[in-house]
Computed example of a mutant assay.
Amino acid sequence: MKKPIYKKWWFWVIMILVIGVIGSMGDDKDSADPSPSATVEPAKAAVAEATTEPTSQPSASSEEEKKAAEEKAKKAEEEKKAKEAEEAKKAADAEAKAKEKSIPREYKAALKKAEMYAENMNMSKTGVYDQLTSEYGENFDKKAAKYAIDNIVFDWKENALKKAQLYAEEMSMSDSAIYDQLISEYGEKFTKEEAKYAIDNLK
């Protein structure tokens, strides 16, 4: 009577070999096809590393570009302001020329005469006006004389001081007499403030 096949020694040898082959195939599958958790964890770690990585500082080239852009904008603004100022000056000059053309010749002449009396004869503002309108003086129209007085630019206090020095040196007058002569309507016709300045600064 024959022994059952599972009792034969070579049967068990074959079974052991078969089990070993199957086991090794399972190990290869595990290593070739990792579980979802095995692939997800490294991905999460990479994302976390990417998100937590500190923001890098701007490069030197980007800083230079930013600075260059700011300087360019500043220069453009300065050029714009300079252009606007130049245009405003041109407009003002054009307006002044147009205004000057509209001024009557006699008005201009009265202004020149007023400047001459103020500078060369050290006269007061009122004294200049009276000289311009006097029939024994320049005999200008009152409107022309007023235009001259309104537009003349002069240091009347200095004129008062020069007149005071003249009276003091050539006529040896007292301070009180000089003051009266400076403010007198029959004298120099300076204002009280101008006369006081002259006396206070008289040497």
Score class of each variant (00 low, 15 high):
200 D>L: 08
144 A>T: 05
157 K>S: 15
135 E>I: 14
111 L>G: 00
125 K>S: 12
165 Q>G: 12
9 W>V: 08
84 E>F: 08
185 E>D: 12
73 A>L: 15
142 K>P: 06
83 K>N: 14
67 K>A: 08
160 A>C: 13
95 E>A: 11
156 W>P: 00
29 K>L: 13
97 K>N: 13
46 A>R: 09
56 S>F: 01
125 K>Q: 13
33 D>W: 08
149 I>K: 00
56 S>M: 04
41 E>W: 05
108 K>N: 02
197 Y>W: 06
121 M>W: 12
82 A>T: 12
185 E>R: 15
101 K>R: 10
145 A>S: 14
181 Q>P: 03
61 S>G: 07
45 A>R: 03
137 G>L: 11
148 A>F: 11
68 A>H: 02
82 A>R: 12
180 D>N: 10
190 F>N: 01
171 M>C: 03
39 T>I: 07
109 A>G: 11
145 A>M: 02
71 E>G: 02
121 M>P: 01
145 A>F: 05
123 M>R: 03
90 K>M: 11
24 S>M: 15
134 S>F: 04
120 N>I: 09
180 D>R: 14
39 T>H: 03
118 A>R: 00
11 F>Y: 12
184 S>G: 04
128 V>H: 02
111 L>V: 01
56 S>C: 01
184 S>A: 11
91 A>T: 10
166 L>K: 14
7 K>R: 05
5 I>D: 06
118 A>M: 03
10 W>Y: 14
171 M>A: 10
123 M>E: 06
167 Y>G: 05
117 Y>W: 09
186 Y>W: 02
99 K>R: 13
180 D>S: 14
192 K>M: 03
121 M>I: 06
201 N>G: 10
137 G>Q: 08
96 A>G: 03
170 E>F: 15
109 A>D: 15
116 M>P: 04
68 A>L: 11
49 E>A: 07
118 A>Y: 00
52 T>G: 06
187 G>L: 02
131 Q>W: 06
20 G>K: 01
101 K>V: 13
10 W>T: 10
144 A>M: 03
11 F>D: 06
176 S>C: 09
53 E>H: 06
76 A>R: 00
3 K>D: 03
140 F>D: 07
77 E>C: 12
6 Y>A: 05
165 Q>Y: 14
99 K>E: 10
123 M>V: 06
80 K>C: 09
97 K>W: 04
20 G>L: 08
33 D>G: 12
94 A>I: 05
110 A>W: 00
95 E>C: 11
155 D>A: 13
133 T>P: 01
13 V>Y: 03
159 N>Y: 05
